[in-house]
Design a binder for these strands. Structure first.
Lengths: 342, 342
DNA sequence: GAACAAAATGTAAGCGGTTACGTTTAGCCA
DNA sequence: TGGCTAAACGTAACCGCTTACATTTTGTTC
């Protein structure tokens, strides 16, 4: 099989195409990037050559010469659960509509990994970046400034932060939800939170619960949230631990739906009925919230709208070379069966 | 603010670093790629310069010169549900351990989009690609061959296919599960499948059910699967439609856990008790399977092992320039409460 | 200290595109 | 047909890095 033949195996380059079509590389480039500049006749010849050779332009070379990649990078904390899935999907769809490609990395909630991913995506020529939440070293923002890469933050709203954001007010939302349950008669509140270090969403949701307690005449300091990673098993374990503490909460507020689903399992494990023995709330309103029994009372986050708007804004920042405009989306309470009035 | 000053805003290049450190660009490059080749003294000087300037090498340039990116691309059908999440997470972790970065795109189960993403990732210099399932145009494989990009397929096992794969035998697994329930006394089988076009997993699972029916003396032709997209709402609707047909199945086999979760909701909607009125099975054994009530009898797929092995194999293919070796992993039945013996 | 080998560093040619600028061709009008 | 302008196309520099090869420095031995 080792016949001596010219190396037809190497990927064709623009030179190959130019030779095949009998034109210069500049013309080939024009056919690809700005076809109107080329005669119909030549254009067709070049396109035939491209077709025949199965040529695809090399992005790296293109990027080096043109400084644009039409790529957006997104770094999310996790792909393991669905929290970011729907928003990201909407984000991608909108980008696709506008001619951009999305590249996704996940950081496993580790800031070191996130930083690595950011540098990676930037070095790879991402025209812009979507990040989740505001909590990260100033050094990273400085780096991104130096590299002139526009950044948009989602899932949080905080105008005092370094980057523009499309999100919602985690603190106010959690406060609203908490006040709602307090008004339903709950006084003994407990909380299972995500790990709040380097996670402003988790931190602000805890603060929101305390705000509500203060506003409703309860002692905010009495809240002693358990912090665990966002997954079902940890939520379950946290619930069991909470009960083992001896305090009998009438309601357990969870940092998100995943933890709440875990908490429900925990209650089941302890033969406690939800909501008769204990009420439980979630946050996010992902599909899971309607899958568990009882269905979760939770805070609905407009994931799809957030993703779509983020895409629009980020592309705007890139193409018009302007600063991003932050937007505060509205999250709303969804009342379902996991909470009962006392 | 428009002072006339040298443009300190441009991202620093290797030339800047070289000048700052008083060495040649070659030396800077060596410090980065092969530090042992450089004296400790110079090395430190260069590193200080890198630090001072906040320099990050440009991947595109690097790739052009060196033909390597240490990047792996993965294209999954969807990020919306958790089917691929765990496997992909394990894949990424293993890659990270070996010094590679993972870039993920999702195709929304559309082959045109998938093709676009493949070309994109390749043009971007991915050293290798992970794809899900075997069903795609031969033209794509030809393209990948021409570009010399190693490809590994996961989630399917089929040695007759064009690409090496790390997966499991969807057909045999589904056959095993089906035979199991037939042996529990079920005779009136129905199925809710994912859309089987361009999806070998879905197709093979249907075939597996028929295999089992044939083997157990039932008529395979009597199975008339409903095909719907993999999400809860569609699973629910499919279940309702199935019952509306008038045939009263004793068990509904679902193409995956997501559809099964939907089917349970459908049963609830029709006031049917699972498993007393109808049994339901899933496939995949994702977290969801233990969240729904009743918990799902399903086929456990070794997601993490699959992801990890896929990473090992793909890196091996890249670094040793060899063909990939396929592996058939074992999926196993998990019996839970959603199926009852008749 | 000379001679030589080995280690450290520098020089410069690409990698595969884009694009400013120069040259050729085509189109139009007198 | 000649002359002028605009359109089409070609030439070549450049993007930021790696690396083969050339050169310089360092270390060793006698």
């Amino acid at each position: 099989m080792e016949k001596a033949m010219p190396d037809t195996t190497a990927a064709p380059t623009i030179d190959d195409v130019a030779r095949e079509a009998g034109v210069s590389t500049a013309t080939v480039s024009r056919v690809i990037n700005d076809p109107d500049l080329v005669t119909v006749k030549t254009r067709e010849r070049v396109q035939a050559a491209i077709e025949a050779l199965g040529y695809t332009p090399n992005f790296a070379a293109r990027f080096m010469a043109a400084k644009r990649t039409f790529t957006i990078g997104a770094i999310i904390p996790t792909m393991e659960n669905a929290i970011f899935a729907r928003g990201l999907q909407a984000f991608q769809e909108e980008l696709h509509r506008r001619g951009y490609t999305l590249l996704v990395s996940s950081s496993a909630y580790k800031s070191k990994v996130e930083e690595e991913q950011i540098r990676n995506l930037v070095a790879r020529g991402a025209d812009g970046l979507l990040l989740i939440g505001h909590d990260r070293d100033q050094a990273i923002y400085d780096y991104l400034d130096r590299q002139h890469v526009p950044v948009l933050v989602a899932w949080s709203y905080d105008t005092t932060a370094h980057a523009p954001c499309i999100g919602f007010d985690n603190r106010a939302a959690m406060q609203a939800l908490t006040e709602d349950v307090i008004k339903m008669g709950h006084r003994r509140l407990a909380m299972i939170s995500g790990v709040s270090e380097q996670n402003d969403r988790a931190r602000l949701r805890i603060a929101g619960v305390r705000d509500a307690m203060a506003a409703q005449g309860l002692d905010p300091a009495s809240l002693d949230p358990i912090e665990v990673p966002y997954n079902i098993a940890d939520g379950q374990a946290a619930f069991v631990e909470l009960i083992a503490r001896g305090t009998k909460p009438s309601i357990v507020l969870c940092g998100n739906d995943v933890l709440a689903a875990g908490a429900i399992r925990g209650a089941e494990q302890l033969n406690m009925n939800v909501p008769d023995d204990v009420s439980i709330t979630g946050f996010d309103d992902i599909e899971l919230a309607q899958v568990v029994r009882p269905e979760l009372t939770t805070m609905h986050v407009p994931h799809r709208a957030m993703g779509q708007m983020a895409a629009q804004e980020l592309v705007g920042m890139i193409e018009e070379k302007r600063k991003g405009v932050s937007q505060n989306l509205k999250a709303s309470i969804v009342r379902r069966a996991s909470v009962r009035a006392l």
